[in-house]
Design a protein around this nucleic acid. Structure first.
Length: 463
RNA sequence: GGCACCAUAGCCAAGUGGUAAGGCAGAGCUCUGCAAAAGCUUCAUCCCCAGUUCAAAUCUGGGUGGUGCCUCCA
């Protein structure tokens, strides 16, 4: 029985899907105006873990993730420049090119990190008509009104506004930091459709003239299009709770008349050196940058898996080094199990599986599940352990089936190097240690470390 | 100013009433020509104070410290 923490109730709840055996899930995706950084990716590793656990539990999954390629402005006052347009101007490309480039890059990162693509990837620009229709419905139902610069949602018509974040609008210093648009009925009313200035690049025809969608309507329109008026789960980062998801709830429930999402699940932020990750501090990293520093993408996945998704994770290179070593040893140990000759008692195996299953089903407690795996791996080497670890890997996504001896080099080794190494080995066999050591030193100069094993030796290219 | 969340060993991190998982680093030992790997062993009483309880890291109250949100942000 899966239990999951619901932001709406602030409690762990038993998960019960609307339709037995099937799960419908919507995940907030990226705005593709820039590269995803490791903090962004933590959220998608969380999404992926959640999806994996659901599948592991036997659910048939339909997941939808949006690609936001239009609409988000730079400020919350429904003012400022469109992010896509800004990136386009700066890089001298069209917004469409910007979107395509960063979308592709984003999914490259997914591949590297073993993050599975949701079943439906929905681009905002492909769903403008659905959004216009929904905006019209909001107007017809009296939830939205038109002013000079666009169509706005009237939050006074939605008494539940704020129920997810539990922020009281009265207690907020309304307009303190967001410039009040005098035509808006309430400072927190938000745009569902914006009328475009002539120079605005991305704009579409609508009943209200040329324009473009507001920041939140896309998720409402696309989630309902693919998942229906009611669906099970909505995921995202905690930052989306106060504004984006609050507004999405308002739109959805105004459109559908009643609760539309049963479980709101959010992942916490990542910190860097105990502080916020920000470009100004120069501590924003991308996966490709970690790779340049000698970390494999899955080292980073392991790093994330070692912490619970609802806890802030402090990124440090000391921590990354630990994750890298730990993960390498895990693979190495599993490789030995793969060739293990012991038999493991069925009850013992069943007990590990039980512990693992309970951990991941208890609000996705993956750190605890990893602990179970580590304890299991300490058992006498047995192929049974290896097979069970592969089962666990359906949840972990750590490519445990790729387990190999730690020292093995992935790069081809040239004949010259190989020859030197063979000579060293021969000298060693002949107990001519002086020559062997000299050759080892020579190889070291060439950037290779020789590691002796029981049967022979392996070469490792130095980083 | 308002609202949340968090505080466990050098580091990362589980544990939410019954006597501190796991990983990294460190230390010792075994093995191996050396080196590496591997194996074994070892390493905390849970921010502070008060309270509830037979029993608290776990509950309550009060401190202190940290982070986030209320602006775009995963």
């Amino acid at each position: 029985m899966l239990k999951i923490y619901n932001t709406l109730s602030r409690q762990k709840e038993e998960f019960k899907p609307i339709n037995e055996g099937k799960v419908t899930m919507y995940s907030c995706g990226p705005t593709v105006y820039s590269y995803a950084h490791i903090g962004n990716l933590r959220t998608y590793i969380f999404m992926d873990t959640f999806r994996r656990v659901l599948k592991y539990d036997g659910y048939k999954l339909k997941g939808v993730m949006n690609i936001t390629d239009v609409g988000h402005l730079l400020s919350d006052g429904d003012e400022g420049e469109d992010k896509m347009a800004k990136a386009a101007r700066e890089q001298k490309k069209s917004p469409w090119e910007i979107a395509e480039f960063y979308t592709n890059y984003f999914f490259e990162d997914f591949k590297k990190l073993n993050i599975g693509k949701p079943e439906v990837i929905a681009k905002a620009t492909d769903h403008i008509q659905e959004m216009i229709k929904d905006v019209q419905t909001l107007i017809d139902k009296g939830y939205a009104y038109e002013i000079d610069d666009g169509i706005y949602f009237d939050i006074s018509k939605f008494p539940d506004y704020g129920k997810l974040s539990r922020l009281s609008l009265d207690e907020q210093q309304a307009g303190a930091r967001v410039e009040v648009n005098s035509q808006k009925r309430h400072p927190a009313d938000f745009a569902v459709w914006k009328k475009a200035e002539p120079e605005h690049i991305m704009q579409w025809e609508s009943p209200w003239g040329m324009g473009y969608p507001g920041w939140h309507i896309e998720c409402s329109s696309m989630s309902r299009k693919y998942l229906g008026s009611r669906f099970d789960i909505h995921t995202g980062g905690v930052d989306a709770i106060p504004v984006h998801h609050e507004n999405e709830i308002a739109q959805n429930e105004a459109l559908e008349g009643g609760k539309t999402v049963n479980y709101w699940v959010h992942s916490e932020f990542m910190l860097v050196n105990n502080g916020k990750m920000s470009k100004s501090l120069g501590n924003v990293y991308r996966i490709s940058q970690l790779e340049e520093m000698g970390y494999a993408p899955l080292d980073y996945r392991y790093f994330c898996l070692n912490a619970h998704y609802r806890k802030k994770l402090n990124f440090t290179f000391e921590g990354m080094d630990g994750a890298k070593t730990s993960y390498a040893r895990l693979l190495s140990t599993l490789y030995q199990h793969k060739a293990g000759t012991n038999a493991t008692d069925k009850d013992v195996l069943a007990e590990y599986k039980k512990q693992f299953d309970e951990a991941v089903n208890d609000d996705l407690n993956v750190p605890l599940a990893l602990g179970v795996l580590w304890t299991m791996v300490k058992e006498p080497k047995s192929k049974d352990i290896y097979e069970l670890a592969l089962q666990f890997d359906k949840v972990l996504g750590l490519s445990l089936d790729k387990a190999q001896p730690q020292a093995q080099s992935e790069e081809p080794i040239s004949d010259d190097i190989r020859k030197l190494a063979d000579e060293r080995y021969a000298a060693k066999k002949a107990k001519d240690f002086a020559t062997a050591d000299a050759l080892r030193a020579k190889l070291a100069d060439l950037g290779y470390t020789v590691l002796d094993t029981k049967e022979g030796y392996t070469l490792r290219k130095d980083k």
